[in-house]
């Protein structure tokens, strides 16, 4: 299948330190890929390079066959590359309904309209209700975000991303900071993501990685050291050495 998202020979150095060192990656629609790596492996830099918040030293980022390396972050979002944040970045004084409506209106090029209220726009409200309903947030849709639980805020992050109808979704630790009791809801939301959406998830929680991903990419010292199936990742000696050591040993011992 034609790749929807491609990174070719991406490089970026800070001073003399190569933080992203010749990284290449390709994803097709429907892919579920987890990007893992020890602290300092360059995951955040990689995300920033891909989303356009950092300029690469060399290399190329392609989205739907188009080179977007020279396009800014906003332009990449408009072309279907959407990210969620590791620490929720929501508008605390606004409601979940407003968040999703804003995303829908922005996607349709209607966020600059000076008149009319989204509450009186049936098409927008239908979509808002549907999306929030799917994530179990419908009852809270008119509460302030500052009044809802953190786990629900994480779900709202996903709802906002989905409302933008992305082609490629970068999820930055979607379950980070969520109490154990609420992770089930997040995992369900991840399992329910649209089938044709390409998802790249950056995650530390290996249990979640193994349940979610069909493919795992391991980043260490700015380079990809493994790209393959979850079942092979723990067996790969380089990965065990670089990152998974204790986890792999522990699971074998068990």
């Amino acid at each position: 299948m034609q790749p929807i998202f491609e990174v070719r020979n991406l490089k970026r150095a800070f001073g003399g330190l190569a933080v992203t060192n010749d990284v290449s990656l390709s994803m097709a629609p429907g892919d579920r890929v987890a990007l893992i790596g020890p602290n300092g492996a360059g995951k955040t830099t990689f995300v920033n390079l891909v989303t356009g918040n950092l300029t690469p030293g060399s290399g190329e980022v392609r989205l739907g066959g188009e080179t977007v390396t020279g396009i800014d972050a906003i332009g990449r979002v408009r072309r279907g590359l959407v990210r969620s944040f590791q620490v929720t970045r929501l508008f605390l004084e606004m409601t979940p309904a407003e968040h999703v409506a804003l995303a829908v209106l922005q996607r349709d090029g209607r966020s600059g309209r000076l008149f009319g209220n989204f509450l009186a726009m049936p098409d927008v409200m239908d979509e808002v209700g549907q999306l929030l309903g799917k994530l179990g947030l419908r009852e809270l849709m008119h509460r302030k975000v500052s009044e809802i639980a953190y786990g629900q805020q994480r779900l709202l992050e996903i709802a906002v991303a989905l409302a933008l109808k992305p082609k490629v979704l970068l999820l930055d630790e979607p379950a980070a900071g969520v109490p154990q009791s609420d992770t089930g809801r997040i995992e369900q939301a991840l399992a329910d993501l649209p089938a044709d959406l390409a998802v790249l998830m950056i995650e530390h929680d290996m249990d979640l990685v193994f349940r979610f991903a069909k493919r795992v990419v391991v980043l260490a010292a700015g380079a990809i050291i493994f790209d393959g199936s979850p079942s092979d990742v723990t067996r790969d000696p380089r990965v065990r050495e670089a990152y998974l050591g204790s986890y792999a040993n522990a699971s074998h011992a068990a």
């Binding site: 508008f91 606004m94 966020s111 008149f115």
Partner: peptide, 14 residues
């Protein structure tokens, strides 16, 4: 109260 007003409130926050 328009979509634009909502956008501006969101910009103020983040």
């Amino acid at each position: 109260r328009s979509p634009f007003g909502m956008l501006c409130r969101a910009i103020k926050e983040d």
